[in-house]
Write a protein that binds this DNA or RNA. Structure first.
Lengths: 250, 250
DNA sequence: CTACGTCAAGAGCACTGCTCACATTTGTTG
DNA sequence: CAACAAATGTGAGCAGTGCTCTTGACGTAG
């Protein structure tokens, strides 16, 4: 049983340091192969070749192919989450619409720059691979948490058009939403919470269509403008003021 | 010398009939393997085994693995398109909201019943496989055509809230939309057309999240109700009357 | 110095896509 | 009917994959 399963312990022996370095190299090489060849074509043997080692040696560091996929999954989720947090955090806290736009733009930008890794996160599941929830739910929920934080802050600030949802939330759905609300620590009402979930899936639907080429080869010559328009409409769906940020005086 | 060299003729010779039958068997077996093991794990050798023939024999009927994937892609697109057309056609032409809801429900129902084939259509692209546009764009655009037909009919009938789009459509996007409008033979204005595209991607975004398990294992205990709520909101995004269908007298 | 644990190497198994030479079946034609 | 040619099936083979196992080399702890 290897000790120090806890994160970020100072590697005492030089052996452990070399081992940690090798694992990081494997992740780096795997990330490159993933970006080039796609998720389902990720090959441990190819990684071993690039590492300059025989194929079976990588099994000393990574249990199997699934393990490497999980490492890359967490790695990609965190990179996306970092990009989103940085983009959102660059705007003032009260600029809810701007922060929402920044979140969506950051997701799209990262997805377009890393299509294969995006596909690993949000595409069809890799056959035979089931992501271990205990290791991926944390990094995997960073974007929706950031989105809900924006919407909740806007709601608390009274900057959300709360009244206009005529769509009733039936009891079983309300029960789900109540559970999610407490988990998020949010205070938005049911209608807005459900709309937030819709905006979330819609954002990734639009990004996925673009990244996966579902639009067709030459359907949209102006994808940036299309996405900006979609973001504006989605902001309205979430009840955000489509107009620009007005710093609250006082 | 009998000419009889035209396409899609009744297969005259029994040999051609047997050949067509074998190809259909291959597609059927491939569909089953696809549904069970996923797209990237589709194996020609396994299909050959199930067909009761040696592995190399299937290459007499199917050029390679890509060819079989293309056949299965078209097959799935058409099955989805048939399901959507049937669901939409079951409602009166003037029930625009009902038809929209039927379209969305049909897409979701088919996706949930055929998750692997849905993943082939709308998930991450299979590594190294590029769908031939000349064979897949036709079947692949049936859903968006059906959706736009509903929206266009509603617009022509004056049953769409056209005025309320404050989001400007910038010129490069307007050029794209103009091209798409003529290709569809539609007459909806730019704002509604762009919103239709957003509704389209949002629909598949919501379905993909559910099919691909992006929501998390036990986040929503009432996914039907969540989707129904999403559809209602999306109908509003498309400018459709959220209220029920009122048959026009006459 | 010895013993233990870690590591790399290589062979091997079962699987994949695909190609080729060869054998067999089948339909047509002289 | 016999002969021919096209279509079809066969099996070997190549290169690649994930993964396991045994063997030997090495560094470090006691």
């Amino acid at each position: 049983m290897p000790p120090a399963e806890s994160a970020a312990r100072k590697p005492s022996t030089p052996r452990e340091r070399a081992r940690a370095r090798t694992i990081e190299d494997i992740i780096r090489l795997g990330r490159e192969h993933l970006a080039v060849h796609g998720a389902a074509a990720l090959s441990l043997r190819a990684v071993a070749r690039d590492l300059g080692v025989v194929s079976s040696a990588v099994y000393r560091y990574v249990e199997n192919r699934e393990e490497l996929l999980t490492l890359l999954l967490v790695d990609a989720y965190n990179e996306l989450g970092d990009a989103v947090d940085a983009a959102v955090g660059a705007l003032p806290e009260q600029d809810f619409t701007g922060r929402f736009r920044a979140l969506g733009t950051a997701v799209r930008r990262w997805a377009l720059s890393e299509p294969a890794r995006y596909g690993l996160l949000f595409g069809s599941p890799v056959p035979g691979y089931q992501a271990p929830a205990e290791r991926t739910t944390g990094p995997g929920t960073r974007v929706i948490h950031a989105l809900m934080a924006i919407l909740d802050a806007a709601y608390r600030a009274g900057r959300v058009a709360a009244g206009g949802d005529p769509n009733a939330v039936v009891p079983p759905l309300a029960a789900d939403l109540e559970r999610i609300r407490t988990e998020l620590g949010a205070s938005v009402p049911d209608g807005l919470l459900a709309r937030g979930a819709l905006v979330w899936t819609s954002l990734f639907g639009a990004v996925s269509f673009e990244v996966f080429g579902q639009y067709g080869a030459d359907t949209f010559a102006a994808p940036d403008e299309l996405f900006a328009h979609h973001l504006a409409v989605l902001a309205g769906v979430a009840g955000l003021d489509p107009a620009n940020y007005q710093p609250s005086n006082g």
